[in-house]
């Protein structure tokens, strides 16, 4: 096998483009054999959503202290897709007693289902709350059995799972590119969209962008660069931010702020 190019996978989430349609959630559910979130699961508060859309209602500044008085047309729905942030400095990793979760050399926080014994310590120590525990053995109705993705393990009960950045697609893409070109994996292949994670592929507005930070010509390069010396990410876009940056987890998922038409004066229905 040819020497692989080093990668640093990451994702950009453009909040401005997100409509909260939940297509990513459904795509993820189907791609990764995530168990069915039935009504019962929601009542038990044990749904599993590797990516989920958090919805917030935003009122104008002057109504912060008494949101119930805000005129309805000024109340804005805000959507925040949250998935595993694949932190460079992940709090979930050191606490796992059996090394079921660790950081790989491509910047991914990976979960080894076979090793997991289900202490759930990682979930406690995840500030983003994106680790999920299989409380029950997953079951699918017979008619959905054939829908399961053969590339992805069906997780048994008693273990943790979480977003993998669709690592099975990355691996398949690597194999395809290597077979076709006999060479390295590159972002040109990525640009063709043949191995983006399912959520990225499904997003109708293109608010999710997946790519390689280290590729200077890649899709992420206009938002973020990697400092040669410190190997840290430098955010180039002034809309860019990271969730809970202050606790120093160094997430690999970068968010782009909502553009508020009222503040920027770009018009809109305000």
């Amino acid at each position: 096998m040819a020497q692989r190019k080093p990668h640093k996978w990451g994702m950009i989430v453009d909040i401005d483009k997100c409509t909260g349609c939940q297509a990513c959630v459904v795509a993820c559910q189907a791609e990764n054999n995530v168990q069915l979130n039935t009504e019962d699961r929601f009542h038990e508060r044990r749904p599993i959503e590797w990516i989920h859309i958090q919805r917030y209602w935003e009122v104008p500044e002057e109504y912060r202290s008494r949101p119930e008085d805000a005129p309805f047309q000024d109340i804005k729905a805000r959507f925040l897709p949250v998935l595993c942030q694949h932190c460079e400095n992940a709090p979930c990793e050191p606490v796992c007693p059996v090394y079921a979760t660790y950081h790989n050399d491509q910047g991914l926080n990976v979960q080894v289902y076979n090793r997991c014994v289900g202490t759930r310590y990682c979930a406690n120590n995840c500030p983003y709350q994106v680790r999920f525990f299989n409380y029950w053995e997953p079951v699918w109705p017979d008619r959905m059995r054939n829908q399961l993705n053969p590339d992805v393990t069906v997780r048994s009960r008693g273990i943790m799972e979480k977003c993998s950045f669709c690592i099975q697609r990355l691996r398949r893409g690597e194999r395809q590119v290597e077979a076709a070109e006999g060479g390295e994996l590159n972002d040109r292949a990525l640009a063709e969209g043949n191995f983006a994670p399912a959520c990225v592929q499904a997003c109708p507005t293109g608010s999710l962008i997946f790519g390689d930070y280290t590729d200077p010509d890649g899709q992420l390069s206009q938002y973020v660069a990697v400092d040669e010396d410190t190997n840290e990410k430098v955010l180039k876009d002034d809309r860019a931010y990271q969730l809970l940056k202050n606790i120093g987890t160094e997430p690999n998922v970068i968010y782009l702020k909502k553009i508020d038409p009222r503040r920027t004066g770009e018009g809109g229905h305000g």
Binding site: Y99, V117, T119
Partner: peptide, 24 residues
């Protein structure tokens, strides 16, 4: 309380019981 209590040995005993990986 572990999710898979039948596999806790490679957690509880600091020895490479499984796949040559010592506990963390």
């Amino acid at each position: 309380h572990a999710g898979r209590p039948w596999r806790v040995f490679y957690w509880v005993f600091p020895f490479d019981w499984a796949r040559g990986v010592y506990p963390n």
